[in-house]
Design a protein around this nucleic acid. Sequence first.
DNA 1: GACGATAATGAGAAAGATTATCATTTGCAA
DNA 2: TTGCAAATGATAATCTTTCTCATTATCGTC
Lengths: 149, 149
Amino acid sequence: MKEPNSPDSPLADLCRQRGLKLTGQRRTIAFVLSDSDDHPDVEELYRRAVEVDPRISIATVYRTVRLFEENGILQRRDFGGGRARYEVADGDHGDHYHLIDADTGKVIEFENTELDSLLEGIVRQMGYDLVTTRLSVVGRRTVKPRTRG
Amino acid sequence: MKEPNSPDSPLADLCRQRGLKLTGQRRTIAFVLSDSDDHPDVEELYRRAVEVDPRISIATVYRTVRLFEENGILQRRDFGGGRARYEVADGDHGDHYHLIDADTGKVIEFENTELDSLLEGIVRQMGYDLVTTRLSVVGRRTVKPRTRG
DNA sequence: GACGATAATGAGAAAGATTATCATTTGCAA
DNA sequence: TTGCAAATGATAATCTTTCTCATTATCGTC
């Protein structure tokens, strides 16, 4: 059992900064999110939230996750599999991208400023300002040629 | 009313080449797809298919689209909006990417070899072989400063 | 600290997209 | 042409997400 109260989690603070009403459920979900460094879907978030406060409803998790996304606190991701997954939104620093292991489904984050600016340039040249980049590459572990072992 | 019979469409030929049973419905759907250069969802494909053969079922469209994807004939895309969209898979030439107009939802295709090789290089450096790239950028039309009109 | 307007929550119904079921029909090889 | 495995149509079922509405909680104000 974790301690969601005492000092508020970073996301709960963010929540307050955006002028959102800070309810017990939102505090719990914010805490769970601050405590996660992966890309959970709503079911998984619900499971983790219930650990902290058993009387939370999955409807509230859906609502909160949507609210947080609309307020730039969360980012929604689609890695296939039919359900949306969420992660804490990037701060000032540039976007990051995702490499998905084709065999294990594991998600590996990476950043690349060259990629950032190339995309920006391409889009600008087409007469647009870049709003969002949705990029995930699927890859398969490189087979080393005869390393023995 | 189009002519789906006579000579088979390119996709119908592909279908036969892959050893798939070429039913009337598959011939129709292949024809409709060969005839499309946009990114229709299943509902839209169904509408177009019914124009050609009114007794086709939406269940068959779902099934066929999945079959074609599994056989590398179609590619599934996700542009948001909750439904999958499909397009004919690229042949030999490199991947293409999608720019989505944030205001109109219009999808604009583009290619960029520099982007191709940059992604390939990034992934390789991480110890992976690139399998698939899922990239779509959302952009907003650049506002020209005072063009009057 | 209590009050009240207003917004959030819980539980379950509803919606929307996709897949499964199963009796009937069809393609295709012999 | 015949037969069999596979495909189809119609609809039920499933899965994720949103909506409804009665109840409850938050937060500014006194």
